[in-house]
Write a protein that binds this DNA or RNA. Structure first.
Lengths: 233, 233
DNA sequence: CAGTGGTCTAGACCACCAT
DNA sequence: TGGTGGTCTAGACCACTGC
């Protein structure tokens, strides 16, 4: 159960930072001093400092020293998956339709698509206890010979739909999250009342060359949906 | 402009992972093989692998090898600050009142507070162009001699209100994000119509001993509020 | 048993910073 | 110029995995 020394050093420093003994902006003992204090080699001390740095506690300035960071109070980790983020989890997904369409003004703007390009529009409904709780629209650039297999589409998340060729590592995603009144289309599909509150989550998928490879929005019934996030430094 | 060798090695491996040449679960060349291939010492190779590991690309199994991770498709970075997250930014904040109150059932549940403890309730309104766009309720455990200075409270974010003694590093935060219909209290304060859609963001602050040191909710007018998040691995 | 990753050392040279 | 962090080496010993 012996902790490696570099972990011990890192935790000692963390304690000093958490307790306020070391404040943001304060400089930390030099690496040579620490290696003398703990009677270890400088490389071991550097391993501790690298760890603290990657966790956001400190940063270093070449030629000067290591310093305590200003904690980033506004940064959170959020977990979201349009298929799993619903309270109690979706127990059925229904593929409404898959169509090859001409881009509208909205999709042309959001996907930087040209008029002559075609898009695939996938529409799905998610159910809990036979009640529709989410309505999902996804647009994917169409290319000739694209496999549009219903079974695959039915339970796939957005990245899975798009990244049939590329590695999932290469796909970046952006979310926009907002509350809004249900529009006509959403009202009809979720069978709710006009103007009911909806959580709309817009997803944009970009590949490693920053090309937009997918765009869409999922409309969640607000009673069945809640996002959670935790602070992260 | 020379890149350090350990960066070159790490980027070579990243390319192989991003292109799909190395797939999740695949094992990576052993550290000894890599150090021969690149003609560097094993410590340098390990530095590359440590970097990739901390970025979520790979993981290692002692005695076996290094492996490509399964990318975490559901993880995002979210930035949120109740004072800054509003479109166009808040240009005025009005402190409605600060009261020492007995805990209600709701606060007792959410703050694990006891009946005989007292709480401070801070109520604020945020404005854009003289229009109220957010209504903010925050509860803080009261202790004798606590400084309740109006000027400080007016523009402070939640952690700043709470962490007057502890280091900000020691404070963890949890968010719950949901869309909902405006309640009576919210309708009155934001001067909107009954049932208008609202984005409610609940914040819970915990110290390093997991004690709840703050709890509250900010109600945003949905037209003026949108969260953004980016994928993170 | 040989091979793997995990820890650690005692040096080295460099670029950078302050004085 | 001396101190700082950044990179890198060529070893070492350990615990673990698979055969």
């Amino acid at each position: 159960m012996r902790e490696p020394i570099y972990i011990v050093i890192a935790e000692d420093l963390k304690k000093m930072i958490n307790s306020g003994e070391l404040e943001p902006g304060d400089s930390i003992c030099s690496e040579n001093m620490l290696s003398e204090q703990y009677n270890v080699s400088r490389m071991t001390v550097r391993k501790s400092l690298t760890l603290l740095s990657s966790e956001g506690y400190i940063y270093s300035v070449p030629g000067k020293g290591n310093y305590v960071s200003v904690p980033n109070q506004d940064k959170y980790i959020l977990y979201f998956n349009e298929m799993k983020s619903i309270e109690g989890s979706v127990d059925e997904t229904k593929l409404l339709d898959v169509n090859v369409i001409k881009p509208t003004m909205e999709t042309m703007y959001n996907m930087k698509a040209f008029e002559n390009k075609r898009l695939i529009l996938v529409r799905r409904l998610m159910y809990i206890d036979t009640k529709p709780v989410a309505y999902d629209l996804k647009y994917i650039p169409y290319y000739r010979g694209m496999p549009v297999v219903e079974k695959e589409i039915n339970y796939a998340t957005f990245p899975e739909l798009v990244a049939q060729k590329k590695s999932l590592f290469a796909i970046r995603k952006e979310l926009k999250i907002k509350a809004q009144r249900a529009s006509k289309d959403v009202v009809d599909n979720l069978r709710i009342n006009d103007g009911d509150p909806i959580m709309a989550i817009e997803q944009k998928l970009l590949d490693d060359e920053d090309k937009i490879v997918g765009w869409g929005t999922t409309y969640f019934l607000s009673d069945y949906f809640q996002l959670q996030a935790i602070s992260s430094l």
